[in-house]
Design a protein around this nucleic acid. Structure first.
Length: 210
DNA sequence: GCGACAG
DNA sequence: ATCTTGTCGC
């Protein structure tokens, strides 16, 4: 698995490589027993209105091991993505991007494999350090002396979130795009709506006792 | 050897 | 991530 991550890291690009952002998507996963529910929400980049949603339910086939999240959620994410009729110009993933010990977080892995621009949005730091940002501000997340992402304080009441390039996007642009997706909550709409979506599906599954 | 550790 | 009620603060 480390060999695979080394290949991913060798293919990552942190250069902006995409045209005008019209459609942006967010993905997230929920768990129920031995199954994983993965959902994608496609949004209009300017209005943050929902355009389309898609999801898949799979059997969990890998445990949660820090730095190896890709091997647990990667396939379901790709499958949910492929179910979308319209494809996003950029994807925001719940997890790390290049802010990973081996520069191969879930967002980066998905970006390289699907060859699409991605941004990683995490609620906790996996590696690196950063000063606590003031409301609305972002401080660089440093690792071994290099910047690998940002610690962004999106509002007064919430703990800061971690923003980092996944693939085909720069350090500055990933922060700019993330900020444009904020609507007063801790998380950008992409990630927030994807999270609500998978929990909505999970709730329905429980009600139907499936 | 000990502690940290995305979801 | 998940379990799980009330409760403190803006």
């Amino acid at each position: 698995m480390r060999g695979i991550q080394a290949e991913i890291a060798a293919s990552v690009s942190t250069e902006d490589d995409f045209g005008n952002l019209k459609k942006i998507a967010g993905v997230d996963c929920a768990f129920l027993g031995d199954r994983i529910i993965c959902g994608v929400v496609l949004l209009d980049y300017d209005t943050m209105d929902v355009i389309e949603r898609a999801c898949v339910v799979r059997e969990i086939d890998f445990p949660y091991i820090p730095t190896y999240l890709t091997f647990r959620e990667g396939k379901p994410v790709v499958e949910a993505l492929s179910k979308l009729k319209r494809k996003p110009d950029l994807l925001m993933v719940d997890g790390c991007g290049i802010n990973h010990p081996r520069k191969a977080g879930l967002a980066t892995h998905i970006g390289v494999v699907m060859d699409m621009p991605t941004i990683g949005i995490a609620k906790k730091i996996l590696c690196g350090e950063a000063e606590k940002p003031d409301v609305g501000e972002a401080n660089p997340l440093l690792y071994h002396g290099d910047q690998i992402g940002w610690l962004l304080k999106t509002n007064k009441r919430s703990n800061p979130i971690v923003v980092a390039p996944g693939h085909r996007i720069s350090m500055d642009t990933c922060l700019e795009v993330t900020r444009k997706c904020l609507r007063g909550y801790k998380l950008p709409e992409t990630t927030r709506l994807a999270h609500m979506y998978v929990n909505e599906i999970k709730r329905e599954m429980l009600e139907n006792k499936l």
